Computed example of a mutant assay.
Amino acid sequence: MKILFSAKPDVWDDYEAPLRRALDAAGLRYDLSRDHAPGDVDYIVFAPNGPVKDFTPYVNTRLVMGLWAGVETVVGNETLTQPLARMVDDGLTRGMVEWVVGHVMRHHLGLDAHIHGQDGEWRNDVYPPLAQDRPVTVLGLGELGSACGQALAGLGFPVTGWSRSPKRIDGLTCLSGADGLRDALTDAQIVVLLLPQTPATEDILNADTLALLAPGAVIVNPGRGPLIDDDALLAALDSGAVGAATLDVFRTEPLPRDHPYWAHPRVTVTPHIASTTRPETAAQVIAANIARGERGEPFLHLVDRTAGY
């Protein structure tokens, strides 16, 4: 069985040994390479910035396995007719939970006033509410959104989650649809965005939806840049309607040096580091999916092309 690794050369250096360990542990007989003849390839381990752009020659490929959680840059590739699996990796999920919880707690506790206010003034006149009195909304209830929502609920926050289709998740109030979105955002004090990027989710936070939030609400976006109408968010930040935003993802990356987010006093920019695919845990996911295919079992984490994720 031949496995093609299609990603940047430096990524191969990170993944080769973990992949071989995981494939060996799964008891698979394989030939893993960056240079198989297309017609011989059974499985492709794929990053969108790798060399494979045209999937037409891969006529015998049974599954394309993405190394990234997002698939928006490949799902529209008309040559990709093979099944496509997105990366659902426990290491990526745990990393995202830690980043989201850290930044939500930072804003909830008002840590910036003390971290940046080391000027000799004794600021002891404002106390944060308890978590139970701070409503949080998580937009997107996939693997990452569900895990982050449950982690925040475990800390005592009342968490409302919204998704395009109905879901039931322990500890969360789950809403869906257009009316559900409005209800989820109304009076939310902290909003975490973990939706996929699709035509239906672009600019989901805009002037109208931002106006639903509690005055001075906080936006935390480790999802995708186009989920936010940047002009609308900047206007809300300037007016104080939105109190702060921590943004990890942007329409253009790296974020241009002259972008107003860099200098805005209410914005924290992080450089798309909220979480990442980790070779050791991702390799185990890849090996497990290949093993399922070799046993004739259904693949996991398949992308719905019509939904875009």
Results as ranks from 00 to 15, higher is better:
residue 2 K to Q: 13
residue 4 L to W: 09
residue 5 F to W: 11
residue 10 D to G: 01
residue 10 D to S: 12
residue 10 D to H: 13
residue 13 D to I: 06
residue 19 L to Q: 09
residue 20 R to K: 15
residue 20 R to V: 14
residue 24 D to A: 14
residue 25 A to I: 00
residue 27 G to E: 07
residue 28 L to V: 08
residue 30 Y to W: 13
residue 30 Y to N: 09
residue 31 D to S: 10
residue 32 L to D: 02
residue 33 S to D: 12
residue 33 S to N: 05
residue 34 R to P: 11
residue 38 P to G: 10
residue 42 D to T: 15
residue 43 Y to D: 12
residue 44 I to K: 09
residue 46 F to V: 07
residue 47 A to P: 02
residue 47 A to C: 04
residue 47 A to G: 12
residue 48 P to E: 03
residue 50 G to Q: 03
residue 55 F to L: 06
residue 55 F to K: 05
residue 57 P to C: 11
residue 57 P to K: 10
residue 63 L to W: 04
residue 67 L to N: 03
residue 72 E to R: 03
residue 73 T to Q: 14
residue 78 E to Q: 12
residue 78 E to D: 12
residue 84 L to M: 02
residue 93 T to N: 09
residue 93 T to D: 03
residue 96 M to W: 00
residue 98 E to K: 04
residue 99 W to N: 03
residue 102 G to S: 09
residue 103 H to C: 03
residue 105 M to Q: 12
residue 107 H to G: 00
residue 109 L to I: 13
residue 111 L to E: 12
residue 114 H to A: 12
residue 115 I to E: 13
residue 117 G to C: 11
residue 118 Q to S: 01
residue 123 R to C: 10
residue 123 R to N: 13
residue 125 D to G: 14
residue 126 V to Y: 11
residue 130 L to P: 03
residue 133 D to Y: 15
residue 134 R to N: 15
residue 134 R to E: 15
residue 136 V to E: 11
residue 136 V to K: 10
residue 138 V to P: 04
residue 141 L to N: 05
residue 142 G to E: 10
residue 145 G to Q: 08
residue 146 S to G: 13
residue 149 G to K: 03
residue 150 Q to M: 10
residue 158 P to H: 03
residue 159 V to G: 06
residue 160 T to M: 05
residue 162 W to N: 07
residue 166 P to E: 10
residue 170 D to S: 13
residue 180 G to W: 01
residue 181 L to Q: 06
residue 186 T to D: 07
residue 187 D to L: 01
residue 191 V to F: 06
residue 191 V to Y: 07
residue 191 V to S: 06
residue 192 V to K: 09
residue 193 L to R: 02
residue 194 L to P: 03
residue 194 L to F: 01
residue 198 T to E: 07
residue 201 T to Y: 11
residue 210 L to T: 01
residue 211 A to I: 07
residue 217 A to C: 02
residue 218 V to Q: 04
residue 223 G to H: 07
residue 223 G to M: 08
residue 233 L to D: 05
residue 234 L to P: 07
residue 234 L to E: 06
residue 240 G to E: 00
residue 241 A to Q: 09
residue 243 G to C: 08
residue 248 D to M: 00
residue 251 R to P: 00
residue 252 T to G: 05
residue 256 P to Y: 04
residue 262 W to P: 13
residue 268 T to F: 14
residue 269 V to L: 02
residue 271 P to H: 08
residue 273 I to H: 05
residue 276 T to F: 14
residue 279 P to L: 08
residue 281 T to G: 08
residue 282 A to E: 07
residue 283 A to F: 09
residue 285 V to W: 06
residue 286 I to C: 03
residue 290 I to R: 14
residue 290 I to V: 15
residue 293 G to L: 14
residue 303 V to I: 14
residue 305 R to P: 00
residue 306 T to Q: 15
residue 308 G to F: 02
residue 309 Y to T: 06
